[in-house]
Every structure is written in structure tokens, then in C-alpha cells.
Design a protein around this nucleic acid. Structure first.
Lengths: 346, 346
DNA sequence: GGAAACGGCTGGATCGATCCAATCCTAAGC
DNA sequence: GCTTAGGATTGGATCGATCCAGCCGTTTCC
């Protein structure tokens, strides 16, 4: 049943094609890489043979000669059982699609979670990838520093938090703008007491998002009724209860959260107090995860344009790899708000 | 600031190491690939130079000679905005970790969603990967057929649904067993009217899971109160309402669902009817997604041992690649039940 | 003591595509 | 008609690790 691999006909090589087409190897190579150098009829003849034989250049040989593998390395982080999980999935998918268009592929590698550099060195020394995409800039600059030092091309998804002026190409989505959108959305629905429910102040991403809420509140001439910290559904639920205790004119009727998980915690608290999401209290989450879609009654959430992020990253990669100066090596994209019933007064 | 790539010192080659260690290239190669062939002191000397220079063999050169890239191809499917999304993420992560242990890497590629073969051919012809992991066996046998025909090694995550006897290595998780576990769990909590809420009968995976529910009910001497079909939260909610209309001794008090999304839909229905999850009605979902964890009050769910799946797949890949006959080329793993409050009576 | 056996090591050939310098060919210019 | 410029085409060298056949030196055995 299973055919012997040695019996299957050998892959045609460039020399095979050249012979069959009655030209030299170089001409075939040109047909592939610099078709404009060939006369039209020659090109057509070569192309016909290529199609006929189903020839595709051997990647290893090409890579050996040109020192470029057309592979992009991406360290696939340990899923942290949190929001960024599904986010990563969407991002990687977009990246695979975007790189495919330029003939590149994504190479995933693992690394010791405690060592941010693990995995990079080995691939570099083996000249296995052309460039890297780094996704955890919030965790420090170790990888970027290493790659810069050895002159390896890379682009980061995430700004260089620790050195904002660093000369490195990056793409990021403005968390501040996202929280601002969320807050303005609640303000437009006549909410005034809008609280921030977020992460510890040590989280760069968390602080960025919080700053957007703060800016929107200030712009509206309001003081935020308070900031609470939580890192899971239950902690968020408790924090929401606490905030909802208040009464009077500046009581809390809106929540902007640093993640969908926290937003869902708030929804639980509302259910327990008999408050109607959207109508009595507005809640907005972050990252538009599956949870936001399926939780009752639907959680309004800030959505990152990951497809666009991937496209821009590939564009930057292309620039970096061709050693051309890139026009705008630092790109901040804007998120959008996906409105669901947790903020609809209807 | 950015160093010139051409100035960075060149990568050491095997010849460099050989010269520095005062041995031939073959000896260095042996030190790497067949250390047992070398005398102890020679090996130590070569090893010292390798460490000193930070030498790693050039992958392209090795790949060209040995015709093995140490890359495993995985077509990263279009996220279908459903349950399998987060599942894929966990699986890919486990796979990356498992392959890393054998010195392999995962190469992701995209493909036209309408053409199951898109992407495979190109990689094969370019001899870019050593083997493939196929994850969508429910979609037909086109890929497996192609790979078998050209003699390319592969292992599937998912049994060959259409030809159960097919001689191909695969690893799968028994959906039937999962649903059985779920049903038995509800039976043990004294539920009797346990309904199945699943997908269309055309879904192989759905039918497999349903069969487990059916088997458990039969074993308990019960008829299922009914089967309902749904494919999103809202449809599941409606279906649950319908089933919960019944009264009398054989009214429905338990739901086994083909996915967490459906399970969450049932929870919504319970909330709307003022029924207490776990206490009045038990609900079990499938795949232990983030949604199951964060929905109130927590959804009991069937969890697939994806880490183990990945490990077994790598084991099979190893066997297939070394052309050794594999001991058990078809492996069915058992899922586990993660119990949360949607099935706890306490 | 001599032949055989064996481990350790050597240099040349090889994988397949691309780079490079040189050659061929065609058409324009005088 | 001859030169020349220019593009099209050619064969050889190259990337770096591995395969292969063979050599050298030591040990074993009759």
C-alpha cells in the first residue's frame, strides 16, 4: 500500500530543466529570478518545461548559496492561560497569511520561559531564519538587544517600552486609544461614574490602557471614581461589588476593563446584584476574545486590528531584509470598538 | 547605532573548527553526529573548539546533503471563529515543545481554505519539510491521499474518518469517551433526563461525541429525552428553552453539549428561567475553552489531553521518518472531565 | 613474525542553485 | 564591410556539511 520512497521519481533539478529546454542552468535560474533578462520566446520555452516537470527550486540549495532561508522565526510563548492566548492565535494566523504573500514561511520555536534569549541564538548560528518577529516587548529588551548586537533583522509587535526612542522597527496597537474609545463610548451613553478595572501598575500594557481612560475622563471634566486591580474573574467580580456599593449622584455606572476576563467578572457581579448590563451599568472589555462573544449578554470589547498588524510587520520585515531604509519604522495602529449588549441602553 | 552586517564576524564553519582543532572535517562531523566513533581525547578537543567558537552546523548545507530539513509542516487553518480556535492554539504550542526535544521545528504555512491540498505540493517539491502534521481529517482524505501517493511522511491528529482501516499513523482523542464521561458524571449526580445538544449529523466529530452520550444512557437503561442541533450560543439557548419546557418525572435536568459554546447557550437559558446551574440543571461542555472557565458559574467541560497528543504525534513522526515500523501507529487517547459549578449540586 | 581485523582519520566528490567572468550573438554606427 | 555596444547565454566555481573509499597505525590471533 505505502509506496517505497526510493521508487518515487526523483525531483527535477534546475539542470534537468535546462537540459530539457535546451538552455543553460543560468538561463533557467534567470527565468525564475530575473525573468526580465530573458528574451520572450526563451522565457516561454523555459517556463513551459518548468510547468511540465512541476519543478520547484530546492530550498536548501538556494538557501546555502544565497544565505537566505525565507523563514521568519517566531518564538511561540507559553500560553499564559489568559487573554493573550486567543489573541496570539489570531495574530499568528494573520502573520502566516501575510508572509505567504511574499514567499516566506513562519518557523515556530520554543524557549525556556525563564530565559528570553533561549532559542534565538541557536537559530542565528545555524543561519536558519532570515529574521525574527518578537512579540513580548513588554518583558524587556533582551531579545532586541541581542539581535541588534549581532545584526540580525527583526521587527517587534509591541513598542520598545523601555527605550521609546530605540531605532528598531515596530508595530503596535494603541491601548490608550482603545481605552479612550471605550470610555468615550460610555460617556456618550450618559454614564458619568466610569471606573477603571485593570492590572498592577507594573504592567506596561496595563498602564498604557489605563492612561487612555484617564485622558478621556479628564477631557470630559470628570474625575474617575476609582481604579481597582484584579487579575482574574473572581477578583474582578469582588472589585466590581466594592465599586458598586456607592450611591448618590457620582455612583459607578460604567466599567472600562483591561481585559475581557475582568469585564466578565464585572458582568457576574451585576448579575448577583440584579443590575442589568447595558441598561443599568455599562461594561467594556479588551481584546474581543471568544469569551466576550459568548458571555451573556455579550461584552462590548476593544478589538486589535491584528490582520493589519501582521501586514505592516511583513512590510517592515521586507524593508529590513532588503536593507532599504523603511519609510516609517514605528507604526502605531488604532483599535476599534466592538459594541455588544453590555453597553447598549436600547 | 545599527552595526553593519557585513562587519560582524563570519559564522565559523566545520572547516574552521577542524583547522583549529588540528583534525579533519570528517572528524568534526563525527564529533557532532557519531561521537561514539571518536577517541575520548579527540572528542574532547573538538568539543572544546566547538564551544569556544560557538559553532553550529549550517542548516542549509546539512539539509542539502542529507535531504532532511528537520522541519515539520503544519497548515495553519483559517480560524473558524469557533471552539477549535483556542484548541488549535494549545495544540500548536504543545507540538512546538514536543518537536523541540527532537531538534525539529514547526513550519507554518497557509492555504486556500477551499483547496485542502494548497500549500502541500509546493513544500513537497521544494523538499522544504521532512514531514507533515495534518489536523483536519474530518474534512476528507485529500491531503492524506496526496502525501501517501508521493510517499511523503505524515501523521494526523484525528482518525481517518472515511477509511477507518487506512494504514496511516494517527493520534486522536475519543470524543465518544468524553461524552460518556460527561453523561456518567451527570447520572452519578442523580440526573435522569439528560439531553444531547450537538451539531448536524453530517459532522463526524459531532456524531462521535453523540454516540458516547447515547452509549452511557443505554447502559443506564434510559432513553435520551431528545437530541437538539445548534451551532451558536443563541441557537443553543433556544434549544435549551424548548427542552426545558417539559415537566413531569422525565423532564430534562441535564445537558451534554458538543461544545462549550453550546454549553454556554444552555447556561443563558437557565439564567432566563431562573434555574440554578448545577443545582437544578447540570450542564457539560466540550473542549475546556477559556469561555468555560470564565462564564458564570463555571462550565464543566471535557478536556482533550493535547500535550499528550503532541508527544505521541512526535513519537510517531520519529518512527515514520526513520522508516522503522512503529509499534502502534493508531492511538486513541482518553479525555478527562474538568468539573466546575455547572454540575455541582452542593 | 606475519596476516588479518579494526578503530581513527584523511582528502576528494557530492547535494542543487546561484554568482561570476567570459563568450556568443545581434543590431546599430561609421 | 568592419567595429562596437549591448544584451543573452555559457561553463566553472562556490556555499558548507556529509558521504565515500582508502590509508595509517595498533591490536589480535595463528
Amino acid at each position: 500500500m505505502s509506496p517505497d520512497r526510493r521508487l518515487s521519481e526523483p525531483h527535477p533539478t534546475l539542470a534537468t530543466v535546462a537540459e530539457r529546454a535546451g538552455v543553460s542552468r543560468q538561463t533557467v535560474s534567470n527565468a525564475l529570478n530575473n525573468p526580465e533578462l530573458l528574451r520572450e520566446d526563451t522565457l516561454a520555452r523555459v517556463q513551459a518545461v518548468i510547468d511540465e516537470l512541476g519543478y520547484t527550486p530546492n530550498r536548501a540549495a538556494r538557501q546555502l548559496r544565497t544565505r537566505s532561508s525565507h523563514l521568519i522565526g517566531l518564538r511561540f510563548e507559553q500560553a499564559q492561560e489568559g487573554t493573550s492566548n486567543a489573541l496570539m492565535d489570531r495574530f499568528v494566523h494573520s502573520l502566516v497569511e501575510a508572509t505567504a504573500r511574499t514567499g516566506h514561511h513562519i518557523l515556530l520555536f520554543a524557549g525556556d520561559p525563564d530565559d528570553p534569549l533561549d532559542g534565538y541564538r541557536e537559530l542565528l548560528r545555524a543561519t536558519a531564519v532570515d529574521a525574527f518577529v518578537i512579540t513580548d516587548t513588554y518583558a524587556g529588551t533582551a531579545q532586541a538587544d541581542l539581535l541588534r548586537r549581532v545584526g540580525a533583522p527583526f521587527v517587534t509587535f509591541g513598542r520598545p517600552w523601555d527605550e521609546p526612542g530605540a531605532a528598531q522597527p515596530w508595530v503596535d496597537v494603541s491601548g490608550a486609544r482603545g481605552a479612550e474609545l471605550a470610555t468615550e463610548h460610555l460617556l456618550a451613553a450618559a454614564h458619568r461614574g466610569i471606573a477603571w478595572l485593570g492590572w498592577e501598575a507594573s504592567s506596561r500594557i496595563g498602564e498604557d490602557r489605563r492612561s487612555g481612560w484617564q485622558a478621556a475622563m479628564r477631557a470630559a471634566g470628570l474625575d474617575g471614581p476609582g481604579v481597582r486591580i484584579a487579575d482574574n474573574v473572581d477578583a474582578a467580580r469582588m472589585a466590581a461589588h466594592e465599586l458598586l456599593e456607592g450611591t448618590g449622584p457620582d455612583r459607578v455606572t460604567g466599567f472600562v476593563c483591561a481585559s475581557d476576563t475582568l469585564g466578565i467578572g464585572v458582568l457576574h457581579a451585576l448579575a448577583e446584584r440584579g443590575l442589568r448590563p447595558g441598561i443599568d451599568v455599562g461594561v467594556v472589555g479588551f481584546d474581543d476574545s471568544l469569551g466576550a462573544q459568548v458571555t451573556w449578554p455579550g461584552l462590548t470589547s476593544v478589538r486589535q486590528p491584528l490582520e493589519q498588524v501582521a501586514i505592516e510587520i511583513v512590510e517592515l520585515l521586507h524593508g529590513v531584509l532588503s536593507l532599504k531604509p523603511v519609510r516609517e519604522p514605528a507604526r502605531m495602529l488604532e483599535p476599534t470598538l466592538v459594541v455588544r449588549r453590555s453597553t447598549q441602553r436600547e
